[in-house]
Amino acid sequence: MAVPGGIKDRRAVRRERPAASPGRRVARALVRETARTAALLVGVTLAMFLLLARAPGNPAAMYVNVTDLTAEELAAVNHELGLDRSLPVRYVVWVGRMVRGDLGHSLRSGRPVTRELWQTGWRTLLLTGSAMLLTLAFGALTAYLQATRRHPTIAGALGTFAYVISALPVFWLGYLVIYIFTTRLGVFPLMSSGEAATHWGFFLLPVLVLGLGNGTLSEITRHLRAHLEGVLQEDYIRTARAKGAPLLRHLYKDGFVMPLSSVLANKLPYVLGGAIVVEQVFNWAGMGRLVWQAAADRDYPILMGVTLASALIVRAGHAVKEAAQVAANPQLAE
């Protein structure tokens, strides 16, 4: 056994190295996540490419309207796009185009896919991000009340609410909210009218529906509660309580930052998927509507673009998780 500070054990010496500053740890974690994302995107694009190659129809349709072309013109287009070459070469060319920002043109509107994505993506990000925050806030509050057992009635009611609303289909929940707020109360204008687009209810209701009704609320609450109950039994929490220190200041890192960031990264795909349905219910002109329309029209370029964009959003969630966890816990930094 190495005596710390005595015999030169390399592992012991390494452990004594002072921890890097939080800023540097986060920067390193982000670099690591970016590299991982790049590696995963290679896999995602490869899978997409193979799916597309197996799909019926001509891939040249990604870039030109193939129906008005003669056979020779089609051959020329195929040659120019490299479609007459082998699959690995075509994959490299395809990825090369993507890296330069050329995702092709929408078959429906004829506009570049990147422009369509920019126009709709921010709305979806806004909806998904706000809904995710609402989910996390509700889950954290309920779990905290349940774990500390201070207000059992409120905690029980919130827990039951979480179970019921997680099992409700989100589209019906959307109908109910629209019905109550527009038809019944008349607080908001009907969602399809032009005036609604600028009304703040147009933003609030979808976020409320997606945030509470995305189906992950009960699972998140249960997970956070189990985690919090574990942390609350730790010795340092008991010490903090004994000396009368504010509990949350000692609890927030291990009790909230760590599990909430994990949940954010793991559940973001679900909320993003739920956004497709909620955008449909509320006529919200985001990426979900775009991909819905594209799936109905077989608009391959748009579908590829949305797939890529959603993979990026999911990976961004993981980057946020890594950064938050490394900032909260120096032991996780390599």
């Binding site: 590696a39 995963l40 896999g43 995602v44 899978a47 997409m48 799916l51 597309l52 197996r54 799909a55 019926p56 795909p269 679900y270 993003l272 998927g273 739920g274 497709i276 349905v277 991909v291 819905w292 594209a294 799936a295 077989r298 608009d299 391959y300 579908l303 949305v306 797939t307 959603s310 993979a311 999911v314 990976r315």
Partner: peptide, 22 residues
């Protein structure tokens, strides 16, 4: 890596892609 690849896409997006293609 394989499982992370599967997890990096929202299920509904992946399914809509498969629906549109096939």
């Amino acid at each position: 890596v394989l499982l992370q690849l599967l997890e990096s896409l929202p299920k509904l997006v992946l399914i809509l892609l498969v629906i549109a293609l096939f």
